[in-house]
């Protein structure tokens, strides 16, 4: 038996793909489709959900009840993805998402996690000193507003539904989606115009 560490990578990949197909775990087409949906996922997907929630109360209710269904309602592929939960920012509560154990991230709706989300510094400080961390993002949360740090430890993935900023009255969904950034849906920043 040859040494796996010295085997040509492409040959090894083909062997694993062959075994996955032979054992009925995943066909080459399944794998291609999963790679495509992972690569196509961007924060723009989550931003569309946020913009729709800001303009459609029924959609907002669905999003808070079942994030996966709300994503699927906008044709965002969720097959094989962990369930999506949505935490709503209000005038009383600001949510901040972190994964202290690794880098769990709502990839289906936000794409690949940014480098800082995976850093040991962010992961440690988000739970111990969230206000100090937010201050470095120039995000000031009033002292009377509760910060709720959501540590994504298990089977769900979490995103934040930020508050719609003033000055966006009468805007279209597309205009609204354009101002929603990745950080707004993690809770390190808030949308502004």
């Amino acid at each position: 038996m040859s040494n796996i560490l010295e085997t040509d990578g492409e040959q090894l990949l083909q062997a694993v793909l062959g075994l996955l197909a032979k054992k009925g775990i995943a066909s080459p087409l399944d794998i291609q489709a999963q790679i495509a949906s992972t690569d196509n996922a961007t924060p723009g997907q989550g931003a569309r959900m946020v913009a729709k929630a800001w303009t459609d109360p029924d959609y907002r209710a669905l999003m808070l009840e079942d994030g996966t269904k709300a994503a699927e309602a906008l044709d965002i592929p969720m097959r094989g993805m962990p369930p999506l939960g949505v935490m709503e920012n209000t005038s009383d509560t600001h949510n901040l998402i972190v994964c202290t154990l690794c880098s769990c991230y709502p990839r289906a709706v936000l794409g690949y996690p940014p480098f800082w989300y995976k850093s040991a510094g962010y992961r440690a400080r988000a739970v111990r000193d969230p206000r100090g961390l937010l201050a470095e993002w120039k995000t000031v949360i009033a002292p009377e507003v509760k910060i709720r740090v959501v540590d994504s430890t298990a089977d769900y993935r979490w995103m934040v539904l930020p508050m719609r900023p003033a000055g966006t009255e009468g805007w279209s969904e597309a205009q609204l989606a354009a101002i929603v950034r990745e950080g707004d849906m993690v809770g390190v920043t808030v949308p502004s115009v």
Binding site: M87, V127, P130, R131, K146, I147, R148, V149, V150, D151, S152, T153, A154, D155, Y156
Partner: peptide
Amino acid sequence: TTDELLVEIF
């Protein structure tokens, strides 16, 4: 502080 943490625990 009234700040809190919300965590998935089995």
